[in-house]
Simulated assay, not measured.
Amino acid sequence: MTSVSHVDIHTVHRIGWLRAAVLGANDGMVSTASLLVGVAAAGSGRPEILVAGVAGLAAGAMSMAAGEYVSVSSQTDAERADTERERQELRDIPAKELEELTRIYVGRGLEPGLAREVALQLTKRDGLGAHLRDELGISGMGPAHPVQAAVVSALTFAAGAALPLAVALAAPEGMVAVAVALATLLALVGLGALGAHVGGAPRGRGALRVGFWGAMAMAVTAAVGLVFGVAA
């Protein structure tokens, strides 16, 4: 008989930084490309297009950083408050907390006697951790830290925004909108596939999803640019 070692490979630990990175790069490409396409469709020249793009990059990177920092900070504060509340309840009403944990395990399919034994054992080992995990759904693998999420979002937004800006700089006069749109769509499809692969999801679905919404965003801003360009 040969013994075969089985190792599970999971990707859930990547969720925090992966979410911030993919969101930042995707938003950087989509928002900056859409802005460039809209300004170009309105009939603006290359200098105006590039100024709008650089301003969009700077504003977007700061907005993403601030948004991620506030969002993750708020979630972290809420989890800290819940943790402190649960610690207090375990100290003040341990019997009720034990009963609560027992009911949770009964609800998940354990027999009452076994559920109580499991609750007792986990309470002796790490009661707070058991309640946080099984009652509140708080595990040790939470989202990224606020500063980490902010920095990752800002940097990835800027990296994503740099692509359409570079294309706008290199494209022939009069072809800026088309070149930016095509290059951005290709990059978005690749980004969607990469993000799905790193997260362990189907690459085709991720690529299609990101590409579709990027195309929609650029189409809308192109239409707006054309309308206002004609009106002017």
Results as ranks from 00 to 15, higher is better:
Val230Glu: 07
Ser73Asp: 01
Ser44Leu: 09
Ala183Thr: 12
Arg203Phe: 04
Trp213Val: 15
Phe157Ala: 05
Ala158Asn: 07
Leu163Thr: 10
Pro202His: 01
Gly109Asn: 10
Ser44Asp: 11
Gly160Val: 02
Asp92Arg: 12
Val152Tyr: 03
Val72Phe: 07
His197Thr: 13
Ala59Arg: 04
Ala55Cys: 09
Met216Asp: 08
Gly56Arg: 02
Pro164Glu: 04
Leu185Ile: 15
Gly56Tyr: 03
Leu186His: 08
Ala159Gly: 10
Arg85Phe: 04
Leu90Tyr: 08
Ser34Met: 06
Glu48Lys: 07
Leu110Gly: 13
Thr11Gly: 04
Phe212Ala: 13
Val118Asp: 12
Val4Pro: 10
Gln75Trp: 00
Val37Cys: 10
Ala59Cys: 10
Ala41Lys: 07
Arg209Met: 07
Gly16Val: 01
His10Met: 12
Arg203Asp: 05
Thr11Leu: 00
Val7Lys: 11
Trp17Gln: 01
Ala150Glu: 09
Ala78Gln: 11
Ala159Asp: 02
Glu135Phe: 15
Ala154Asn: 01
Ile15Arg: 15
Thr2Asn: 12
Leu36Tyr: 10
Arg203Ser: 14
Gly67Arg: 10
Ala65Trp: 02
Leu128Lys: 13
Gly225Phe: 00
Ala21Phe: 10
Ala95Gln: 14
Asp77Gln: 06
Ala215Tyr: 14
Glu99Gln: 14
Gly43Leu: 01
Pro94Ser: 03
Glu68His: 12
Gly137Phe: 00
Leu57Asp: 01
Leu185Pro: 05
Val220Pro: 11
Asp8Trp: 11
Leu110Lys: 13
Pro202Ser: 04
Ala149Gly: 09
Glu68Gln: 15
Ala144Trp: 02
Ala78Ile: 01
Val176Glu: 12
Gly38Ser: 04
Ala95Arg: 15
Ala181Gln: 09
Val22Phe: 00
Ala65Phe: 00
Val106Lys: 13
Arg87Met: 09
Ile93Glu: 15
Thr123Pro: 08
Ile49Glu: 07
Val230Gly: 07
Leu226Pro: 02
Pro146Leu: 12
Ile138Gln: 03
Ala59Ile: 11
Ile104Cys: 14
Ala170Asn: 09
Thr156His: 01
Ala65Asp: 01
Val54Leu: 13
Ile15Asn: 14
Gly60Tyr: 02
Ala61His: 02
Ala162His: 04
Ala25Glu: 02
Pro202Trp: 01
Val54Asn: 02
Gly211Leu: 02
Ala95Thr: 15
Ile49Pro: 07
Ala177Ser: 11
Gly60Ile: 04
Leu128Cys: 12
Leu186Arg: 08
Thr156Tyr: 01
Thr221Cys: 01
Val147Thr: 13
Gly67Phe: 09
Ala52Phe: 06
Glu48Val: 05
Ala171Arg: 08
Ser3Phe: 12
Leu165Gly: 06
Trp213Gly: 14
Ala196Gln: 08
Ala201His: 08
Met64Gln: 06
